[in-house]
Each structure stands twice: as structure tokens, then as C-alpha cells.
Simulated assay, not measured.
Amino acid sequence: MKYTTEITVDLPRDEFIKKLDNPEHMKHWQQGLLGYELLSNNPKAEGAQMNLKYKMGKREFEMVETIIKSNFPDEFHTTYDTKGVHNIQKNYFKEIDGKTKWISECEFQFSGFGMKLMGFLMPSAFKKQSMKYLKDFKAFAENGTSVLNT
């Protein structure tokens, strides 16, 4: 399953990147994030990994983020792996009139019958969650609004 989401954030690209590229900020725009652990000595290098722990509803799960391309301020690509799901994220950042347009290309690859069925029956849920992260980042970056307060 592939789709693209995008949003414009009212910040210059350099300020946008400072907020996006700080793992301490993730808790403010990724609802359900319980914590993270850096798994690599150079956490910003291509190939670096980070373990992320989430709780959505009553379900807790972990995933591993791997940086596949780090070319800030223009682009940042990662993969996310958890049981039954391989997610490829290609993120592009364009500065337009002092604002930043974030374009996120998502590809989900499912393994196992349950995850394949969920991807087939509920593709809009994945796109909705991706868009929620973009909107929550926008609120945090522009106004300091944190999902921790909701």
C-alpha cells in the first residue's frame, strides 16, 4: 500500500528541521509514544537505528526505525519495522515563502495474514494516522501544542 500526505508548516525550513530532527520532541507530536532508545553510536547517520515504544489503545508495541537517507534540509528517509509490517517513509522538505512544505511518501508492506487483511480492509486508517502525525507536528512546531496535554 502506497500513499502520500503533505502539510505546510508556518516556519522557515531550518527551524522546522531543528524541531523535527530532535528525538526529545517526538513525544509532543507522536501520540502514544512511550519512549525511544538510540541503538547506534551516531544516531543521525545513515544506517542508524532507534527503538520506539508505543501504546495505542490497550495495545503496546515496539518498532525499529532505520535511517536510509539523511540529506537535511531537503530529505530524510527511514524504514520502520514491527511484527508483520515494514514501512518505508520518504520525507521531503521544501521552503516556500518562509514556510515549509512537508511531503511524506509512505509505503507499507505487510506479512502474515492478519496484517495483510488489515491493510486491505483498512487502508484509510493508515493514511489517517500518518496525517494525524503531520497535523500534530504542525501544531507543536507552530504553537508549542503538545499531544501530552490532550
Rank of each mutant, 00 (worst) to 15 (best):
K2T: 13
K2I: 12
Y3A: 07
T4A: 03
T4I: 09
T4N: 00
E6S: 14
E6G: 00
E6P: 01
I7L: 03
T8H: 04
T8G: 06
V9R: 04
D10P: 00
P12Q: 08
P12L: 00
D14T: 04
I17V: 11
K18N: 03
K19G: 04
K19V: 04
D21H: 12
D21F: 09
D21Q: 10
N22Q: 13
P23I: 10
P23G: 10
W29H: 05
Q30Y: 08
Q31I: 14
Q31F: 14
G32V: 03
G32A: 05
L34D: 12
L34Y: 01
L34H: 06
L34C: 10
G35S: 05
Y36Q: 07
L38Y: 11
L38E: 15
L38S: 13
L38M: 13
L39S: 07
L39W: 01
S40K: 07
N41G: 15
N41W: 07
N41A: 13
P43H: 03
P43E: 03
K44C: 11
K44A: 14
K44N: 15
E46P: 05
Q49V: 04
M50N: 02
M50S: 11
M50V: 11
M50A: 09
N51K: 15
Y54A: 04
Y54D: 05
M56S: 15
E60Q: 14
E62V: 09
M63K: 12
E65G: 01
E65H: 09
E65Q: 14
S70P: 03
S70C: 09
S70M: 06
S70L: 08
F72Y: 12
D74E: 15
D74Q: 10
E75S: 11
E75P: 04
F76V: 02
H77R: 02
H77Q: 00
T78L: 06
Y80A: 13
T82D: 07
T82L: 07
K83Q: 12
K83W: 02
G84T: 04
V85F: 06
V85N: 08
H86G: 07
I88H: 13
K90P: 06
K90A: 07
K90Q: 14
F93P: 02
K94Y: 12
G98K: 08
K99L: 01
K99Q: 10
K101G: 02
W102G: 02
W102A: 06
I103N: 05
I103M: 05
I103Y: 03
S104E: 14
S104R: 13
E105R: 11
C106I: 15
C106G: 13
F108Q: 04
F108D: 00
Q109I: 15
F110I: 06
G112N: 01
F113P: 01
G114T: 11
K116G: 03
L117K: 01
M118S: 10
G119W: 00
F120N: 09
M122A: 12
M122S: 09
M122C: 06
S124C: 09
S124N: 14
A125K: 15
A125W: 06
K127C: 07
K127L: 09
K128M: 13
S130A: 15
M131L: 14
M131Y: 07
Y133L: 11
Y133S: 09
L134E: 08
L134N: 05
L134R: 04
K135P: 02
D136C: 09
D136Y: 02
F137S: 01
A139S: 12
A141R: 01
N143R: 12
N143C: 08
G144E: 00
G144T: 04
L148P: 08
N149W: 11
N149P: 05
